[in-house]
């Protein structure tokens, strides 16, 4: 079978309680993106602006779970993606947003919207359009089953490239020395 006949691998990406830093790092694979696009096509992703995820092979998720909407999006990804990957420190551990976990959510909202000096007569927003925050920020694997974890803050472009090429080649992704580090 020649390469051209192979159907492209469908990939969806999203950022939940993250900073898009992992997506930026993804873009840092630079010209290798062209090579990648020979093999994959994007479904829901900031690159396509598709609003909802359809059936996919791979879902890449950046950021942890901090509100009800994150849960819905994560569930949508889990329902549609054969392989779901937690990308980056926030998705893997909760990361920076989870720093609020030792503060009571009530006190947190109170300070941000009511007592903070710069706000005159603020109030805690209660529009049903807005997703409610969870009392704590959680990593993805505490809400749905996650198949692979890609650590790093952010994972480097090389790490993401290695991970995806392994996955596309049917190998269990293995970052190994140099690509996996914690500083």
């Amino acid at each position: 079978m020649n390469d051209a006949a192979q159907p492209k691998v469908r990939v969806a990406t999203t950022s939940l309680a993250g900073c898009f830093g992992c997506h930026m790092s993804f873009l840092d694979i630079d010209e290798r993106l062209f090579e990648l696009l020979e093999r994959i096509e994007f479904d829901r992703s900031p690159f396509t602006d598709i609003k909802h995820c359809g059936p996919c092979d791979v879902g890449l998720i950046e950021g942890g779970i901090c509100n009800a909407d994150n849960v819905h999006v994560l569930r949508e990804f889990r329902k549609n993606c054969k392989i779901l990957v937690a990308v980056g420190a926030c998705a893997v551990n909760g990361g920076l947003p989870a720093q609020r976990n030792h503060i009571d959510l009530g006190e947190c909202l109170e300070e941000v919207y009511v007592t903070e000096i710069s706000l005159a007569k603020g109030c805690i927003p209660n529009d049903p359009e807005l997703p409610l925050p969870l009392d704590k920020v959680h990593p993805l694997h505490e809400v749905v089953k996650i198949d692979y974890f890609l650590p790093g803050c952010p994972p480097t472009a090389d790490a993401i490239w290695k991970f995806l090429t392994d996955l596309l080649a049917g190998r269990t992704p293995h970052l190994g020395h140099g690509l996996i580090h914690y500083d």
Binding site: D104, L105, L132, D135
Partner: peptide, 11 residues
């Protein structure tokens, strides 16, 4: 996990 936020917003 949403209980606290429901209480704070009255939703």
């Amino acid at each position: 996990a949403l209980e606290r936020a429901r209480a704070m917003t009255g939703r």
